[in-house]
Amino acid sequence: MCYLLLITRHVIEVDGDRVLTRCRNLFKLFDLLRLLSPTLSPADCKLHMAVWNGKEHPLDVFLAGDFEEWQRWQTKRNFERRFVVSLINIHGTDNWVFGGLYEQIGVEYKKESNDFYYDLEQVQYCAELSGRLVVKFSRNFRASYLLAERWSEDLLVSELKSERLTLSEFPGFKSVNLSKRELDCVIRQSIPSWKGALSSVSGVYVISDTMSGKLYVGCAYGEGGIWSRWSQYSSSGHGNNVELRTLLNNLGAKSAEAFRFSILEVADVHANKNEVITRETHWKEVLLSRTHGYNLN
């Protein structure tokens, strides 16, 4: 689809189409959507302002490719309009990533979980904007499900990225801080920069449980390094650690989604196993992960 937005001088050619890359004069979201679908009305739309729900951040879910299914599950009948406009908060800012325009086909009550499951079908003429369009909206209240006509004038387009938002390239060992969903995405896609870095080193890592605040300190050594070890966590959630396995057995496998993965220090992938374990012991003592965390030894 070819469209021209005459609101900025910053336009570029992408596959023969001229698209907005960054607005100097902010443009309203629904004005843009109506360029693609002239009959779309805010009165037919519900806004889903997706934010941290106490367990997981929707941006992590989106980057992992699970947002559409995640959004379908609602504790109340939140999407009682023909269309849902999904906006995903960028951590700690007034910026929101456009997650898509969805048509609400139907809803089913799931008695076993006391949830409502919505049949939402992404509207394809707006699909190319998903993960690329950034909207500025200052939300000074807690409500996450809004009537679009009340707020359409406040939803301002600030950017249209040339490519869909994805997990960034490997940021360096000192900056690694992955949610479980992000780790799953990295492992599933075998993102080259991540795999290359993590498989080339041994080291000591920490898993933070964002629900309980407890820590687990572990180490990785030998062939495949940290990449091989973290692949096991991605697959099982607990990596065969006794305390983590017990936790998941008691609370359910989904409780692993509260985990975050960081690196405390690295060593050569051919480093002596005992040297790596010694450093692991040091960090267990420093972080008190035996007395106040998930380490048993």
Rank of each mutant, 00 (worst) to 15 (best):
residue 81 R to A: 13
residue 122 Q to R: 12
residue 164 R to L: 04
residue 124 Q to R: 11
residue 95 N to E: 12
residue 68 E to P: 09
residue 100 G to K: 09
residue 98 F to N: 00
residue 133 L to F: 05
residue 96 W to Y: 13
residue 123 V to G: 00
residue 148 A to L: 09
residue 79 F to M: 11
residue 125 Y to I: 05
residue 73 W to M: 13
residue 72 R to T: 14
residue 125 Y to W: 03
residue 135 V to I: 15
residue 59 L to E: 14
residue 80 E to D: 10
residue 89 N to P: 00
residue 113 S to Y: 04
residue 93 T to P: 07
residue 72 R to I: 01
residue 53 N to E: 12
residue 88 I to D: 07
residue 99 G to F: 01
residue 90 I to L: 14
residue 134 V to I: 15
residue 82 R to D: 12
residue 105 I to F: 01
residue 160 L to Q: 14
residue 53 N to D: 15
residue 161 K to Q: 14
residue 165 L to E: 05
residue 130 S to P: 00
residue 93 T to Q: 06
residue 103 E to A: 07
residue 89 N to Y: 02
residue 127 A to T: 01
residue 89 N to L: 15
residue 91 H to C: 08
residue 97 V to Y: 04
residue 143 A to W: 08
residue 45 C to V: 07
residue 141 F to E: 09
residue 65 G to T: 10
residue 54 G to E: 11
residue 50 A to C: 11
residue 64 A to R: 11
residue 54 G to S: 07
residue 160 L to R: 11
residue 144 S to R: 14
residue 75 T to C: 06
residue 62 F to L: 14
residue 36 L to N: 09
residue 134 V to T: 13
residue 60 D to M: 12
residue 78 N to V: 00
residue 63 L to F: 09
residue 66 D to I: 02
residue 71 Q to G: 13
residue 67 F to G: 01
residue 160 L to K: 02
residue 129 L to V: 04
residue 55 K to E: 12
residue 37 S to W: 04
residue 140 N to G: 04
residue 80 E to W: 04
residue 106 G to A: 13
residue 166 T to G: 11
residue 158 S to N: 04
residue 60 D to C: 10
residue 100 G to E: 06
residue 150 R to A: 10
residue 143 A to F: 12
residue 43 A to Q: 15
residue 53 N to T: 09
